[in-house]
């Protein structure tokens, strides 16, 4: 099938010591993400998606508003999870960011602590299912934003995501139960792959290389 589930860049138990247990990753990647991929493949013909890249599909579905939701739900979630796996690492977290990313965060947020607080707030205040994002806005500045369900800053046209955190309850319920703020804090302190985020900043975002 045209769209496929990317392998995790680490083992299912690689993040267990850092607040994301093996069962969470197995379900999240092997069941939830896989279900979005399967559903998206099932829409290619009926929605005329042939030949389009995943990024194009997400952007176009976003512009269609409510009419685009059936496609956006699956395509957006496929894209979002592709990014999510990349921006976590068994060696993630910490305060040592690659130089150009650190200075950009200092410049646009006033410091790493301020960025983390803004990102956490975005995640906590996304009511229901959704995502928190660090994006490069059209004016070149870094911004924090949030989107519901399967949407993302590509579909809303807000900018280019370089870091995303899933705040659907399936992301954290086994590890943190109802405590979403603790999950977000843990994500920022122990899981973020800052090298990957710095690479996406330099390269103008993540390209999945997948198309229908």
């Amino acid at each position: 099938m045209p769209f496929s589930l990317p392998s995790l860049p680490y083992s299912y138990n690689a993040l267990a010591a850092r607040g994301m247990c093996q069962e969470t990753l197995e379900l999240h990647h092997g069941k939830h993400h896989q279900a979005y991929v399967t559903a998206l493949n099932g829409l290619i013909e009926s929605k005329g998606l042939q030949g389009k890249t995943l990024e194009q599909i997400v952007a176009e579905a976003g512009r269609q508003g409510a009419d685009g939701l059936p496609v956006l739900n699956q395509a957006g979630q496929h894209w979002n999870h592709c990014l999510f796996w990349q921006v976590m690492s068994p060696d993630g977290g910490g305060d040592k960011l690659p130089g150009h990313l650190a200075s950009k965060i200092n410049q646009d947020f006033g410091g790493l602590a301020q960025f983390k607080e803004a990102f956490k707030q975005a995640g906590v205040t996304q009511f229901g299912s959704g995502w928190a994002w660090l994006i490069v806005a059209p004016d070149g500045k870094l911004r924090v934003t949030k989107t519901p369900n399967g949407a993302n800053p590509i579909s809303t046209g807000e900018g280019t995501p370089i870091l995303g955190c899933d705040v659907w309850e399936h992301s954290y319920y086994l590890d943190f139960r109802n405590r979403r703020p603790d999950y977000l804090q843990n994500f920022l302190d122990w899981l973020v792959n800052w090298e990957a985020v710095a690479t996406f900043l330099q390269q103008g975002g993540m390209k999945t290389g997948q198309s229908a």
Binding site: W168, E169, H170, N178
Partner: peptide
């Protein structure tokens, strides 16, 4: 059908 209603027992 929020996931918190069923995730501990039924997961996905």
């Amino acid at each position: 059908v929020w996931e918190h209603a069923y995730y501990l027992k039924y997961q996905n």
